[in-house]
C-alpha cells in the first residue's frame, strides 16, 4: 500500500470522525443545557432522576454506552437495527457528552453572583431575558476552559466509534495496520488527531480572547 493510498483512506476516515465530532457538538451542547435545568429543578423527582442519569453517563464507559444504544432497541424491543449504526453512534456520543456539558454549565451557573439576578429582576427583565441576556453570556465565558477540555477529549473519543465498526479514522488505522503489519497508520492517526486538536485549541483560544474584554 502506498503512502498516498493510506493517507487518502485515512482521510476518508477522518471525514467520518469529523461527522461524529460536529454532530455530537451540535446535539450535546444544547441538550446539556436542558439537562442542566432539569438537574437544577426544584422538583426533587426531576433533579433526582437527572442526577442518576448524569451518574450513569459519567460512571460507565462510553464504549459500553455505544453498544447499549445500538443493540438496545433490538434486545429490549426486538426492533430491526438495520441502518441504525450511525444514528446510534451520534445518540450515544451526544447523550454522554450532554451529561458532561450539563455539569460544566451547572458549575458555570454557580459562578454567577446572586446580585446579577437581583439587578435584572429590579430592572424588570423577564426570567427568559435574564437568562439569555445577562446570565448565559457570563456563564459561557466562565466555562470556556472546561468546554475546551471537553471538546478536545471528544476529538480523541471519536475513535471509540470503532466499537460499532463505524469506519472512522482510528478503525481504519487499526485495519490498515493489521493488513500492512505496520505502525505507520497509528502515527498518521496521531498526527491527524493532534492537528485536529490543535485547531480546536486555537479556535477556542480565539473565542476566549474575544471575550476577554470584560472580567
Amino acid at each position: 500500500m502506498t503512502l498516498s493510498t493510506m493517507l487518502s483512506a485515512m482521510g476518508e476516515g477522518m471525514l467520518r470522525s469529523c461527522a461524529i465530532f460536529f454532530l455530537t457538538i451540535l446535539f450535546s451542547m444544547p441538550l446539556g443545557m436542558v439537562i442542566m435545568f432539569l438537574r437544577r429543578s426544584r422538583l426533587k423527582l426531576v433533579s433526582g432522576i437527572t442526577k442518576i442519569y448524569i451518574a450513569i453517563m459519567r460512571g460507565t464507559p462510553l464504549m459500553l454506552q455505544l453498544l447499549m444504544w445500538y443493540f438496545g432497541p433490538y434486545y429490549l424491543f426486538g426492533m430491526s437495527i438495520r441502518g441504525y449504526r450511525f444514528p446510534a453512534i451520534i445518540i450515544g456520543f451526544s447523550m454522554n457528552y450532554a451529561a458532561y456539558f450539563a455539569e460544566i454549565y451547572r458549575g458555570g451557573m454557580e459562578t454567577i453572583p446572586q446580585g446579577q439576578y437581583e439587578a435584572a429582576e429590579v430592572l424588570g427583565y423577564s426570567k427568559t431575558q435574564t437568562f439569555f441576556k445577562i446570565i448565559l453570556p457570563q456563564v459561557i465565558k466562565a466555562i470556556l476552559p472546561s468546554v475546551t477540555n471537553e471538546i478536545i477529549t471528544l476529538v480523541k473519543d471519536t475513535s471509540l466509534a470503532f466499537t460499532l465498526a463505524y469506519n472512522e479514522m482510528f478503525s481504519l488505522a487499526k485495519q490498515i495496520a493489521a493488513s500492512q503489519t505496520s505502525f505507520t497508520p497509528f502515527i498518521i492517526a496521531g498526527v491527524f488527531y493532534f492537528i485536529a486538536n490543535y485547531a480546536v485549541a486555537f479556535a477556542m483560544e480565539r473565542i476566549e480572547k474575544a471575550l476577554d474584554y470584560y472580567k
Binding site: 481504519l172 487499526k174 485495519q175 493489521a178
Partner: peptide, 11 residues
C-alpha cells in the same frame, strides 16, 4: 476487518 488474510484492507 482486522483479520488478514481472511478479511482485511487491501493494498
Amino acid at each position: 476487518l482486522d483479520y488478514p488474510p481472511y478479511s482485511y484492507r487491501q493494498d
